[in-house]
Design a protein around this nucleic acid. Structure first.
Lengths: 211, 211
DNA sequence: CGCCCCATTGAAGGGTTTCAATTATCGTGG
DNA sequence: CCACGATAATTGAAACCCTTCAATGGGGCG
């Protein structure tokens, strides 16, 4: 991600987190953004009933934490799906740089705008896609995001559990499981635990209803 | 909204749109943000199958169009629910002002961040709320948003049709209609066409699962 | 006033959840 | 290295919620 390169001389505090460790908890004071160097993160909120609701999975290159800007409190929990190395960006320092550097400002605004578009797409996904379409879209999005990062491969290792996938997609683990087997019967995927091989990406995108 | 006051000397091109008129269509070049002065807007995308999917309703004071920043193309259609008066903000001009005016920068970033939080909440709504919870949350959000603007009233006039509500909530118009009658039977609402009276806001928030 | 569109209501069908039981996988300690 | 327990994942059957299809009722505008 360009932002990291632009800033690496200035803000370069790498920090590592182990699986299931929290980087931040919702409600805490907003200070930093996190650029993922390696590993994977998830963001979640805790509902009034105390249940977790995952609202994002993040891969190397992604920046996490924009939700905290408005209220200066993080609105999400951020935790590590696996051992993860992140680069911390101090928001106030970033603001100082941004105000002196219009291209950087543009970049930051683009990232925020991308985040908005990302959530808009997810909204659509939830509001009109059926369970199999959601899961197909989810698998495809992982494939696509790895490909964007130069790791184009039909083999994907899921860094999250079935429980996390179901939670994120607004389904139950049973439904996710059933759809995985269905997609295997259709010769679209082959699934072995956390390892997924995409056997027919055309059919996958067709089911996912994405171009 | 403060932003409008801050800028009204510089960017003050008011423009009016009639009911069902499009301010922008998805895919067109991004140039302006729209601050709603009076009336109401909706944003929507057109799916691959050509169906409309509404992803937001906007009231006076709201700013619409942030989704276009990243790609410099609007990702949503924006259209008027009723006759609507908006103030147009030229994005490039705004950027010039922003880079000279740190408090303004902060304000803009806050607005983007708020948009993100808004969509995150909607995501949660879709992914884990049932139909009656969604509709209750929708009605409550209208009440709340009007209250934020100083128009605290238990009487709400819906500016959108049942069809639009159903589309936005990812339900069918029949389901929306049935839930409206159910909420009346529970003495929570009284519904007469586009006019809604909230008879028991506590029960409403309880069903909506919002504090 | 009548037409058309919007909203409401009813019954049947499909998809997802829930509950329950079984199987697989992973980490740990013997 | 294998055995074991605990956790995760799969599979089945019944219940439930929402959709779909169909018909009726109501309200606004010419």
């Amino acid at each position: 991600m360009m932002l990291e390169n632009t800033l690496h001389t200035v803000v370069d505090r790498k920090q590592s987190f182990v699986k299931d460790e929290f980087l931040v908890k919702a409600g805490h004071d907003f200070k930093k953004l996190y650029v993922i160097h390696s590993g994977a993160l998830k963001t979640s909120i805790t509902t009034h009933e105390g249940k977790e609701q995952i609202n994002g999975f993040y891969l190397p290159g992604d920046i996490v934490g924009f939700d905290g800007i408005a209220s200066q409190k993080y609105s999400n929990n951020i935790s590590a799906l696996t051992n993860t190395l992140v680069c911390e960006l101090d928001y106030d320092e970033l603001m100082v740089l941004v105000s002196k550097n219009p291209p950087l400002l543009k970049m930051v605004l683009n990232l925020l705008s991308l985040d908005i578009i990302n959530y808009q797409k997810l909204m659509i996904c939830y509001s009109q896609k059926k369970a199999d379409e959601r899961l197909a879209a989810f698998i495809y999005s992982l494939y696509f995001r790895y490909a964007q990062r130069g790791h184009s491969s039909l083999n994907i290792k899921l860094s999250m559990s079935r429980h996390d996938i179901a939670n994120f997609l607004g389904l139950t683990i049973e439904t996710v499981s059933r759809i995985f087997t269905r997609l295997q019967e259709l010769d679209i995927l082959s699934v072995k635990g956390k390892y997924i091989h995409i056997k027919d990406i055309n059919k996958l995108t067709k089911i996912a209803n994405e171009l």
